[in-house]
Design a binder for these strands. Structure first.
Lengths: 230, 230
DNA sequence: GTATGATTCAAACGAACGTTTGAACAGGAC
DNA sequence: GTCCTGTTCAAACGTTCGTTTGAATCATAC
C-alpha cells in the first residue's frame, strides 16, 4: 500500500463532487442529503463541511467545476468559427452548432460524468433555487452575450427581441434533448434507446428550422400598430 | 356572518391545493414544507393529512386537478380540427396549434393560477420525483398517443422516430417558453417583459419551423447504411 | 525521535421535517 | 336535550436534516 493504493483512493474533494453531481441529478438538490453524498463517496460526513463549508457551497462548486469548462469550450468554438470567417458575419448554422454542439458533446461524455451534469444543468435553468439561478446568470452572462452578438450580425433583418426568444426556445429543446430518452419513454413506452451520436444532427435540424422560420405575422402587425397607435 | 363570511372562507381542500400549487412552483416539492402550505392557506397543519392523507397524495392531487382539465381541452381541440377536416389528414400546423395552444392558453391564465401550474408542469417532465413521473406518464399516455397518430398521418413520409423526437423538442421549447421571462432575464438582463399574447405566435412559428425542417442527412445515411449492412 | 499543520473520524447538536393523536367543536337527525 | 358524523385544533411523536465539536490520525519538517 505505497502509491496507487493510498488509504482512500483519489482526492476526497473530487470524490465528494462526483458523488454529489450524480445524486443531485437523480434526486434533486433538496432531496439529496449530506449523508447520501458522503456515503456514496465513501468519506466521513463532516468532510463536506470541512472541504466546502456548507451544502450550498458544495452545490455551487459542482456547477462551477463543469460550467467553467463548458463555457470556455463554447467560446473557443465560436472564436474558431470567427477566425475562419475573418470578419464576415457567421452563418447561423455555425453559431448554433458552436453553442449546442459543445453542449451535446459534453452530454455524450458518459465516461467522465458529463452526461450526468448536462442533465442536471438542463433542469436547473427553470429550477427555483435562488442562489443557483443567480450563480448561473453570472457564469452565463459573457458567453450568451457573445453568441447573441454573433446572431445579431448573422441575422441583421430579424428583430433582436425575436432572436432572443428563439435562442430561449432552442435552449429548451436542447434541455429536453439531453434529458433524453427517459423523458421520451414517459409518453412513448415502446421507444427504444439508440445511438446518442444521432441526437446531434437531429437536434441541429430542428433548431435551425426553428431559428430560420418565418417571423410570426402578429409580431409584424403589432409593430406597425404600435407605431400608429399609442 | 351567515353566508359569504363563513368561518374560514372557501373550502379548506381548495385553499390547500391553491397554496400548495403556488409554493411548489416557487420552491419545488421537497423544499415546500407542510407548515409552509398550511400557513399560507390559513388552515391547521393537520388539515393536509386529514384531507389528502399525505404530502405525496397532495402533490398528486395538485397535478390531477389541472392535468385532467388540460388534457381534456387538448383532446377537444384536436377533435374539433378532425371534425372540420372530415377524415382527411390534418395539417401539421393545426395539430401543433391544438396541443400547444391549449398549453399556452392555460399558461396565460394568471387569474385562476393556470400560469403557476404550467410553469410547475414544465419543470416536472425532467424532474426526478419517481411517482410524479409515473403519474404524469399515465395521465399523458392517451393524449400523446392521439396527437402522435395525427402527426403520423399528417407527415406520412417522415419516419415515426423522427416525429417523436421533434415532438419531444417542441415540448422542451414550450416548457422554456412558459418558464418565460424569468429564465430569459438570466442571460439578458436588459430584457423587459411584454404582452404575453405575443408569445403564442412567436412559439408557433418556431415550433413549425423546427417540425418541418429538412431531415438531417445523417439519419438518411444511416437508414440506407442500415439496410445495406448488418 | 518530537512538533506542526492538515485531514479524518465518531458523536452529538438543535432545528425542521411529515405524521399522528385525542380532545374540542360544528351542525343536523332524531 | 342526545347522538352521530365530519372537521378543526394544539400538542406531541419519532426521524432526518445540515452543521459543529474535539479527539484521533496522517504527512511532513525539523
Amino acid at each position: 500500500m505505497s502509491e496507487a493504493t493510498a488509504k482512500q483512493g483519489p482526492d476526497t474533494r473530487a470524490r465528494i463532487l462526483d458523488a454529489a453531481e450524480a445524486l443531485f441529478m437523480t434526486h434533486g438538490f433538496e432531496a439529496t442529503s449530506m449523508r447520501m453524498i458522503t456515503g456514496q463517496a465513501g468519506v466521513n460526513l463532516a468532510a463536506v463541511n470541512y472541504h466546502f463549508g456548507s451544502k450550498d457551497a458544495l452545490i455551487q462548486e459542482v456547477f462551477r467545476r463543469r460550467l467553467t469548462e463548458l463555457n470556455r469550450d463554447r467560446l473557443a468554438a465560436l472564436e474558431a468559427e470567427e477566425a475562419v470567417a475573418g470578419g464576415a458575419p457567421l452563418k447561423p448554422s455555425k453559431i448554433v452548432a458552436a453553442f449546442f454542439g459543445v453542449s451535446l458533446k459534453m452530454a455524450a461524455d458518459t465516461e467522465h460524468g458529463g452526461a450526468t451534469f448536462m442533465r442536471l444543468l438542463g433542469r436547473t435553468y427553470t429550477e427555483p433555487n435562488e442562489f443557483v439561478r443567480q450563480f448561473l446568470a453570472e457564469e452565463y452572462a459573457e458567453v450568451v452575450q457573445r453568441f447573441m452578438d454573433a446572431l445579431y450580425r448573422a441575422l441583421p433583418d430579424v428583430p433582436r427581441e425575436e432572436i432572443l426568444w428563439r435562442f430561449h426556445f432552442m435552449m429548451g429543446a436542447m434541455s429536453y434533448a439531453i434529458a433524453g430518452t427517459d423523458a421520451l419513454k414517459l409518453f412513448a413506452g415502446d421507444f427504444d434507446d439508440e445511438d446518442p451520436a444521432r441526437l446531434m444532427p437531429r437536434l441541429m435540424s430542428f433548431l435551425l428550422g426553428g431559428l430560420r422560420a418565418p417571423l410570426p405575422e402578429e409580431v409584424v402587425d403589432q409593430n406597425t400598430q404600435r407605431r400608429d397607435a399609442a
